Simulated assay, not measured.
Amino acid sequence: MTTTLPSGACNAHCHVFGPGARFPYAADATFVPAEDAPKEALYALNDRLGLERCVVVQSACHGFDNRAAEDAVAARPSTYRAIALLPTDVDDAELKRLDAAGFRGVRFNFMGHLGRHTPIEDVLSLAARFAPLGWHLQIHGDPALLTDLAPALRRSPTPVVIDHIGRIDASQGIDQPDFQALLRLMSDERFWVKVSGMDRITRLGPPYADAQPFARMLVAEFGDRVVWGNDWPHPNHAGPLPDEQQLVDLIAEVAPTQAARQALLVRNPQQLYRFEDRT
């Protein structure tokens, strides 16, 4: 059964790749996609699925050159926003320029396959500089970081968004230390989590029965600090690529009430990404 999404539903995590002829991939990119995934394909997918709003997360394949993500937002300035990848010594003028262009935070990758990690103290120093813009930190990493970096992340001067249910291993169950570490972080009201990536944490495959309980618990316990995204076009995906409509339909399994879906898809993204404040 196809899930009917609320008006203003947001895909809060996806990417654009290229087109390479216009937005070249970074020379030192940790991965280069096999094919482009341009903004037109993203628009068409979101429109077909009923996702009226969107957050484009800068991809590591483009490095610190955020032009592809910026271009995707520019054509739909009221309903699209972006998250940047930036060096920690970026100047304040560039932060302000990106804010005006619709960027709302900076992502830092702590996954082994995405290259060298930025020192966490440098991350926090940058966060202090973009805090006046109302931006947030977005953290993507190995589950161990939820324990290893937790003391530092709790000192963040901005909200912190944890990607993809913390990239835990769904086969290890709700009581596993990694998920318990995520729950402890979420007890701090400055932390948010993306209940995206069930297809990444599953060990059973679709419809991700082993992963659903984690997302369902996060929505139930922290309903005002969860957002959802489909992670299109699923970079560095280890298993078969998910069916996009199935991902949308599974929203009803993890957010079973209309009120929960309204918060997950509309109210929370509005607060975090500030839609409709640009013309």
Rank of each mutant, 00 (worst) to 15 (best):
A150L: 11
L85W: 08
Y208S: 03
S187A: 15
R129D: 00
A152V: 00
W192I: 07
P87T: 13
E121Q: 14
A152T: 02
P207R: 03
F110P: 06
V106A: 09
D122G: 05
L126K: 14
R200F: 04
P151I: 06
P143R: 08
R116S: 11
T147P: 00
A127V: 09
L146T: 09
A101G: 01
M186C: 04
L153K: 10
M111C: 12
A181K: 02
Y80T: 08
S125N: 13
G197D: 03
Y80N: 03
L145A: 02
F103G: 11
I162T: 09
A84Q: 11
D188N: 15
A211P: 08
L153P: 06
D99N: 15
N109W: 05
E189C: 13
A74N: 07
G197S: 09
V193G: 04
D89A: 10
R200K: 15
H164C: 07
Q180S: 09
A144D: 15
H136K: 14
L133P: 11
R129T: 00
L124F: 07
A127N: 10
R154S: 14
L98M: 13
T158Y: 12
K194H: 03
R167A: 07
D210S: 04
L85V: 11
L145S: 07
L114D: 02
F108C: 06
L98I: 04
H164G: 06
D122S: 12
E189M: 14
D91G: 05
P177Y: 01
T202G: 00
L149I: 02
P151H: 05
D91T: 04
A75D: 03
A127G: 09
H164A: 07
H117C: 08
P159D: 12
L85I: 13
Q176Y: 05
M111W: 04
A84D: 08
Y208M: 02
A128V: 08
P206N: 01
L137P: 14
F191Q: 11
P207T: 02
A84C: 11
S187Q: 15
D92R: 06
I165M: 15
I83G: 14
G102L: 00
V90I: 13
L86T: 11
Q176L: 01
D92E: 09
D175W: 01
L204D: 15
R76P: 02
L149V: 03
A74C: 02
I139N: 14
D175I: 00
Q138H: 15
A100I: 01
D148C: 05
F191G: 08
S196A: 12
L182C: 06
D163A: 05
D163F: 02
F110M: 04
